[in-house]
């Protein structure tokens, strides 16, 4: 049953007791949290996700809770924990919901070495997956948000899971993290886009999350064939420009964007080699989202 079929009260109750279990792409995640903002985040952005049953396997048991200290009365904070283990320093209370998303990224990237994990957004149209690797600020999340608003399937805005065994990309569609100006840009680009509550003054500035399209969530069990690797660069006033990139350079640039490249060793190198062989590779500069989306839609025909 989808989360949207549950009442707010039921959702808050299960978050407060044993935890709320959701199927998020490949992963079964059980979350407990007494924090209302976390419940609201789920209700607003995770409505299309299936809930799980007591007889299911749980990959990650996570919690978002305020630490038990005197500080909670002065300047309250929250901790993220995986099965009781706290990997990060606490964050301000207002960032509780975003902490869930960041923490889940950490869980996935540390425990999924059957995949080469590329720090990249990945979206699909006509059975062709387009991979957008890039450092924060390159505009990969904004670009992928714009594309899914125009009908592309979201596989991930942050973690591209390239399966070492079959060379396919396994989707983990989740809310797309948008920062600072991107929040306004996407709201204008697609007035229908649902964006959850925005927190300010995080390490990354102002952060909000966009709800993934219901379709992308429904088809999250179906892996995708990689077709293009495109390194985006947003630059104010830049013309839309797609410049072919050699496979060798692409491989080296991709390796820099992998989270577990050294863990996989030779298998990781081979997986990247196959990915580059199977894909057209480009550098891409842009400032106009409409033009960018139109260009890619044409490329995916």
């Amino acid at each position: 049953m989808k989360l949207s079929t549950f009442s707010k009260k039921a959702i808050i109750e299960s978050l407060n007791s044993d935890g709320l279990a959701l199927k998020i792409g490949l992963f079964n995640v059980k979350l407990s949290s007494p924090i209302t903002a976390v419940a609201e985040h789920l209700i607003c952005l995770y409505g299309a996700f299936d809930t799980l049953h007591a007889e299911d396997f749980i990959d990650f048991n996570v919690a978002i809770e305020a630490p038990l200290s005197i500080r909670r009365y002065l300047r309250p904070q929250v901790n993220f924990s995986l099965d009781g283990f706290i990997p990060f320093k606490p964050l301000p209370y207002a960032q509780a919901a975003a902490f869930f998303e960041w923490g889940l990224n950490w869980c996935i990237s540390g425990n999924s070495n059957q995949f080469l994990i590329i720090h990249a957004a990945v979206v699909e149209l006509n059975k062709q997956a387009f991979i957008f690797p890039g450092a924060p600020g390159s505009g990969k999340s904004t670009l992928s948000a714009a594309m899914v608003c125009r009908g592309w399937r979201l596989l991930s805005d942050e973690l591209t899971l390239l399966c070492v065994a079959d060379g396919l990309i396994y989707p983990v569609p989740r809310p797309i993290s948008l920062k600072n100006q991107s929040l306004d840009i996407i709201s204008q680009f697609s007035p229908d886009a649902v964006i959850g509550s925005i927190v300010h003054d995080t390490l990354k500035g102002s952060v909000g999350h966009m709800r993934p399209p219901d379709n992308s969530v429904d088809f999250s069990a179906i892996p995708a064939q990689p077709a293009k690797v495109i390194f985006p660069k947003f630059k104010l006033g830049a013309n839309t420009g797609l410049i072919p990139l050699s496979k060798g350079k692409t491989l080296l640039k991709l390796a820099e964007n992998c989270l577990n490249y050294s863990v996989l060793g030779l298998d990781g190198f081979n997986a990247l080699g196959q990915l580059c062989d199977a894909s057209d590779c480009y550098d891409f500069s842009y400032s106009d989202l409409d033009e960018a989306v139109a260009l890619f839609t044409e490329l995916a025909v």
Binding site: D59, S112, N113, Q114, S262, V263
Partner: peptide, 12 residues
């Protein structure tokens, strides 16, 4: 999946 992932890490 969890076991395999940890075995890959252990090999590294």
């Amino acid at each position: 999946a969890h076991i395999q992932s940890s075995l890959i890490f252990a090999r590294r």
